[in-house]
Write a protein that binds this DNA or RNA. Structure first.
Lengths: 135, 135
DNA sequence: ATTCATTGCGTTATGCTATAACGTGTGGCA
DNA sequence: TGCCACACGTTATAGCATAACGCAATGAAT
């Protein structure tokens, strides 16, 4: 994957997500960037579109929120060598734990192939309580 | 699972979903029930809450839409004997195909157990093109 | 160098999704 | 009878996302 350099807005949005270290909404990002000249949601959404395309950011469908890819320094995101990303999201503390499972990927692929279904994007999200919050 | 009888509003909403045979939004449901006296979103959302609790309806997170459980007549929904529900959603025709996979369930359970994560609700959604739409 | 297409950007307005907060009515039950 | 739980109805508001317009910068092709 040849990642084009990020534009200024994309960098700002990405930076906010990296600092957050947990999923935050587009409007939260907007609020945190008002001092940097952001005024409208579209400025955020457009940056998020590019960042998710590039694999640097994931969208959590069950939260309507976004998070920086946890593996952006590993080979997986540099080369997109892995398949689907899964998240365990704690409803207590808001932390989202990103992981991969090849067997799950495999099962989904098998299911799709058997039905000639062509997957474009797969969402796997477990909501629940993390060890700390369940205690 | 002892399912309490549905109230009038719950029945109306459920009926709309069964007839739709594909995911539809809460506001679409509202529009289709205006002739039956529905006026406000909350009437729909309250019914949907109960129906999803009862396992008769699933929410598709990636669509912000709802669909009647495809297996409501089988043992699976009467007794909730299965685990997680997965969907293959066609971005072309809008059809959503519900399925289960024990191996995926198993992998997710193993992952959670290893981390003392207590799952409450799991979402698995594959978006893509169905065989007919990909042709 | 001029033309053209592409891309990012900023702004205003709007639409879609979901819930808060309040009050009413009804049925079960001590 | 008094209480409680629950479904319901209404108004208002919060939260998430995109349409449509125009401008500016870039870079490739002629």
């Amino acid at each position: 994957m040849i990642a084009p350099a990020l534009t200024k807005n994309q960098s700002l949005v990405f930076d906010v997500l990296v600092r957050a270290e947990q999923p935050i909404s587009a409007y939260t990002i907007l609020d945190r960037l008002r001092d940097h000249g952001f005024r409208a949601p579209l400025q955020v959404y457009r940056a998020l579109d590019k960042l998710t395309e590039a694999g640097l950011v994931h969208r959590l469908e069950s939260l309507n929120a976004f998070v920086a890819c946890a593996h952006r320094n590993a080979s997986c995101c540099g080369g997109h060598s892995h398949g689907t990303v899964a998240f365990a999201i704690c409803t207590g503390c808001g932390q989202a734990d990103e992981f991969h499972d090849h067997e799950i990927d495999h099962r989904l692929t098998v299911w799709a192939k058997a039905r000639n279904f062509r997957p474009e994007k797969t969402t796997i999200e477990i909501r629940g309580l993390c060890a700390r919050c369940a205690a």
